[in-house]
Each structure stands twice: as structure tokens, then as C-alpha cells.
Design a protein around this nucleic acid. Structure first.
Length: 444
RNA sequence: GCUGUGGUAGUGUAGGGGUUAGCACGGUAGGUUGUGGUCCUGCCGGCCCGGGUUCAAUUCCCGGCCACGGCCCCA
């Protein structure tokens, strides 16, 4: 018996119908916002990802050497490949570029619900435009996607690591990796802040000799929850820390634009302690969570970052984008459909189209094939009975595959040039000439 | 990396140191000559893998694998 590798999944027909519907929905939203789809290889040079994320990532990669000894890896994420492709193929295209992408990524890590070794990401990147309005465009699309998918009870958190870095620098934390430490003090502090580990932060500050009261101020900042209105308090706290306020002004501008560009999310909190862990983020950062997913509840995350300089295109930094956890959003939608008694998990997943099952009964099937072809050419879904079942079983088969209509063509029918067209829902049956147009008219 | 629980047909389950391992759904074939979703019957198909204890293991024990949770981590 062969089994699937750990952390991978098979998708059956029902699941795939749902996934396709979801992908199409996301694609439609992205397209309305002006994003155009691109696709990059499933594997890339290993150094693409070590350049972006440091040598430590190798442990989580499906890395390998090809027969020429080239160091390659299955892609663990899609932002770096997109940046690479932009640098390699899209230098001459008009900016800003608005790109969308969808595909599987691979990470070697412990697998559990909401966390797979092969997982799917949908994402967008806005390259070559910067500032509050560009940021608002990105967040607005994220909001639009989650809202359009029918997701409820999700939380949008918006922060700004630029402000946070300024603040921490002002407190005397180092942005460089000191000897004896494996990351800059600022990175450690941001990680602790993101987790809400106040004790760890207190210890860190004590070690560095940060003035008393700093932790309390940050706690106050972290406690802010709400929309634009929280910025007044934030402004006051930041002033106390003597932080420059222009980034905060930009954040406010971005939030105002967002409110005009997107529906209000179910829950919005502007929180300057959202850190997103990754050191290439430089400005606005945001995350969407679905609390009912538990530990694997982050379904979307992104922000403004600097990566193009790695490809010699500094002038395009910072860019802004987000990645959407395709599998996680689906898990959340499934859980919510169950909880709320919704019959559709993804809007539009159930097709309303008629499906005609054609049953050649005791005749040479070739007699009906031209008709089948013609119906299919005219964009109708047509199934053909292939097993020469008895009539009764044929109806059972048609019903089981979801056909809405059955057309039986037996010897007598053939002679008369008609078929028995039965509506499986109503049970009504009529004789219809073996003519594509007339059949279609009956199904309409 | 740590940890908890569990693994009986494709799915959902019953059972239990010696059984023809039961049931439901499913799939398939039929219930006499051209009409489904009901019903009846036959058939298909299972004790996760390896080792140990035992006269005997699917059942008890250990290890692995897999599944579902909780930590750690998460570019």
C-alpha cells in the first residue's frame, strides 16, 4: 500500500470544486482591484531564500541538489520568487506592478490541522508604489477578499514596525547584532512584544538598562484596541517617548483611506505592537486572525517591506503585499458553515447548471455521439452512460452523479428520431426530437 | 523538538486472549423483456506495521508509522 507523504493531502472531487470556487473568488477580487496573475517555478535556487531569510531557514526547506550539483529547494513562500521574477523579467514594465499569485509552498515542519508540509498560498504584491495610499490599497484588497469569501468573526490588526523600531531605538536598544547575541536587541524586543511576553520584556530591558516605566508605556500601547480613534492615545504615548510622529501621521492617513476603500472589518484594532517577526518589514504591517482556529488562527498577513534591494532595484522599495493562507481560510469557512448552518462553504461552490445524462439504451452508442458532441460544443454539461446498464440502473447512475435531466434513446426512439427527456427533479418526461437546439430549449 | 489521546472494510462503528470478527452507509450484480431516489437478495471489502508474552494475540506489553489535540517554532 502506498500512502501520501506526511503533511500532504489529496483533494477529491467535492473538495476540489470548493477549492476552485475559492480560488476563482479570490482571483475575481484581485482582478477587480487591478492585480494581474503571475506564476513562478515550484523550485528555486536555495540562495534566493537564504538571502531573504538567512541561513537558518534551510532546516525548514525541502532542499536538494539536481544532477548538475545545483543547490535548489522547493519554494517555502512566494514573495521572494515574485521579487526575483520582477527583477529578472519585469524591469521594463510600467510601475507600479500589481501582481497576484497562487500556488503551493513547502515547509518541512511538524504537520497538524492548519499546518501542512505542502500548503497553498494566495497573495499579492504592489511593487513600485509606496505610502499610505498604496498600503491602503493592499489592506483594502485583503479585507475585500475575506469579506467576499463569507468569513465572519475575523480580526484585522494593523501596526507599524517603523514606529515601533523608532521607539525601541529611542529607548537605547541596538539594531545591530551584538557579539554574544544571535539577533539584534530590537528584534528580540519585537518578538516579545508580539507575543505579549511582558516578563521577558521586563527582563530584557533590565539587562540593557532601559529607563523604568518603558514597559508600562509599551503595555499601554499594546492595550489599545479600536480604529483610528486609538491614534490620539498612541500619539500621546509616543510623544512621551519622544518618538517622531510622521509615521503615525501616515498610519492615520492609511486608515482613513482604508475606511473609504473597503467595508469595515468585523473587528479592527490598530496596535503598534504588532511586529510580524520578519525583519524585512519596514512600515505598516497587518494580520488577520480567526480566533476559532486556535493556534493556527492567522489566515492572512502582510505589510510594507524592503526586498527589492536584494535584486539591485532599491528604487522600488518599499513594496507592500500580503499572503493569504488558502487552506486556513477554507478551514475557517468550513468550521463556520458548520456552526452557522450555512449550506455553502464557499460562495458559488455549488453549480446551478443543468447536467444532462444521455443514456443510449440497447442501441449503438455511436448513434447519439454527434448529438452529445453538439450539446457539449454549445456549452452544456453532458454525461454519457458508458456501462450499458439496465434502464433502472441508468437512472440510479444519473441521479448519483448529480444529473438534473436524463435523456434515454432506445431503438424505438431512434426510429422516430426522438429521445425521452426526463427531469429528475420533477419526474416529468417528454419526447423531444434528437436535436441540440430543441433539447436545450427544454432544459432552459 | 516536547507532550496527550487514539488506530477494526472506502466511510462510520460493535466486539473482544480461542468468534465463520457483527452492523450501517458505500460499491457491484440481480429481483425475467424500456424508467431513478423506497424495498429484498447475492457479492466485494477489515482487526496499521514489527517485535514480545502466551498452547493461542485483532485483543495484553514495547517500538515504529499514521491520525487528532496542546506546547515550542513559524521566513
Amino acid at each position: 500500500m502506498f500512502t501520501r507523504p506526511r503533511g500532504t493531502r489529496d483533494f477529491g472531487t467535492a473538495e476540489m470544486a470548493r477549492r476552485l470556487a475559492f480560488e476563482n473568488l479570490l482571483e475575481a477580487r484581485a482582478s477587480r482591484h487591478g492585480f494581474k496573475r503571475v506564476q513562478t517555478p515550484i523550485f528555486e535556487s536555495l540562495d534566493l531564500f537564504t538571502a531573504k531569510s538567512g541561513p537558518g531557514v534551510v532546516g525548514q526547506l525541502y532542499a536538494f541538489e539536481d544532477k548538475g550539483g545545483r543547490k535548489l529547494t522547493l519554494r517555502p513562500e512566494l514573495t521572494a520568487p515574485i521579487m526575483r521574477a520582477v527583477a529578472q523579467e519585469m524591469r521594463q514594465e510600467p510601475k507600479p506592478l500589481k501582481l497576484s499569485y497562487f500556488g503551493q509552498c513547502f515547509r518541512y515542519e511538524e504537520f497538524k490541522t492548519g499546518r501542512y508540509r505542502e500548503f497553498f498560498q494566495y497573495g499579492v504584491e504592489l511593487i513600485g508604489a509606496t505610502g499610505p495610499l498604496a498600503d491602503a490599497e493592499i489592506v483594502a484588497l485583503a479585507v475585500d477578499m475575506l469579506a467576499s469569501s463569507g468569513l465572519v468573526d475575523w480580526e484585522l490588526k494593523i501596526g507599524n514596525v517603523g514606529i515601533l523600531r523608532d521607539l525601541l531605538t529611542g529607548l537605547g536598544l541596538s539594531g545591530e547584532t551584538n557579539k554574544g547575541e544571535n539577533e539584534p536587541q530590537i528584534a528580540t524586543a519585537m518578538r516579545l512584544l508580539d507575543k505579549g511576553d511582558w516578563q521577558g520584556l521586563t527582563e530584557l530591558f533590565a539587562n540593557i538598562g532601559v529607563k523604568d516605566g518603558a514597559v508600562d508605556g509599551l503595555k499601554e500601547l499594546a492595550g489599545l484596541a479600536g480604529g483610528v480613534e486609538t491614534l490620539a492615545t498612541a500619539r500621546e504615548i509616543l510623544t512621551r517617548f519622544e518618538v517622531e510622529l510622521s509615521s503615525l501621521d501616515e498610519l492615520e492617513e492609511m486608515l482613513n483611506s482604508l475606511s473609504l476603500l473597503a467595508v469595515a472589518p468585523p473587528s479592527l484594532s490598530v496596535n503598534l505592537c504588532v511586529a510580524r517577526g520578519l525583519d524585512y518589514y519596514t512600515g505598516m504591517v497587518f494580520e488577520c486572525h480567526v480566533p476559532e482556529l486556535g493556534g493556527e488562527g492567522q489566515v492572512l498577513g502582510g505589510g510594507s517591506y524592503r526586498l527589492m534591494h536584494l535584486f539591485g532595484l532599491d528604487e522600488l522599495d518599499p513594496c507592500c503585499g500580503f499572503g493569504l493562507g488558502f487552506d486556513r481560510v477554507l478551514l475557517a469557512l468550513e468550521a463556520q458553515a458548520e456552526r452557522l448552518g450555512r449550506d455553502e462553504v464557499v460562495p458559488g461552490e455549488a453549480s446551478e447548471e443543468p447536467v444532462l445524462a444521455v443514456v443510449p439504451f440497447k442501441i449503438d452508442a455511436n448513434e447519439v455521439l454527434p448529438l452529445v458532441k453538439e450539446l457539449r460544443d454549445s456549452d452544456m454539461k453532458v454525461e454519457l452512460e458508458l456501462r450499458s446498464r439496465k434502464l433502472g440502473r441508468s437512472f440510479g447512475w444519473a441521479e448519483s452523479i448529480g444529473a438534473t435531466h436524463v435523456m434515454v434513446v432506445g431503438p424505438n426512439d431512434l426510429q422516430a428520431g426522438v429521445g425521452a427527456l426526463k427531469n429528475l427533479q420533477t419526474g416529468n418526461q417528454v419526447e423531444v426530437p434528437l436535436d441540440a437546439e430543441q433539447i436545450k430549449a427544454h432544459l432552459a
